[in-house]
């Protein structure tokens, strides 16, 4: 082959090659991006929903039990709540309580007399009864300030 018949550099340049403008390829890419963002937004929506405490009941409920004593060691008579839920019960004459149907995970247990409540962080395990042992309730000497 003569030198003048050889292909020029332009003919070999990869940089000047235009991308395929096949409409089907374009459409395929567009649909791929739609699929990616759809999947990503669904994932984020699911994670956002899981952050809401109400959904935690989907992962099951558990129970807690224990005994509440006053600062002097005598049985405490009062109310027990789980913060942010309608769950509540009362302690028995010996200070014992059992609260069932609590959404699993980290919760705040409130022990209250007729004036104030004290909060105790607890961890509830789905399908299990957690023994909280002895809880000390310190009342206020004066009405709430």
């Amino acid at each position: 082959m003569r030198a003048e018949d050889s292909p020029s550099l332009e003919q070999y340049s990869v940089f000047d090659q235009k991308p395929a403008s096949d409409p089907q390829v374009k459409k395929g890419r567009l649909r791929l991006w739609i699929g990616i963002f759809l999947a990503f937004s669904l994932l984020l929506a699911t994670l956002s929903l899981l952050q809401k405490s109400r959904v935690s009941t989907l992962f099951g409920t558990g129970s807690v039990y224990g005994v509440v004593l006053t600062s002097s060691g005598s049985p405490f008579r009062g109310e027990i709540y789980i913060l942010g839920t309608p769950l509540e019960t009362q302690t028995a004459a010996d200070g014992a309580f059992l609260l069932e149907g609590i959404p699993s995970g980290d919760q705040i247990l409130i022990v209250a007399d007729d004036q104030i409540g004290r909060d105790f962080p607890i961890h509830v395990v789905a399908g299990k009864q957690v023994d909280l042992g002895q809880i000390r309730f310190e009342s206020t000497a004066v009405p709430s300030p």
Partner: peptide
């Protein structure tokens, strides 16, 4: 607005009871 505690305070209330902490 609580000069009794000599402090400004934000608290939670549950079922008509103030959470002490």
């Amino acid at each position: 607005y609580d000069p009794g505690l000599q402090a400004f305070v934000i608290r939670k209330w549950v079922n008509g009871k103030e959470i002490w902490q």
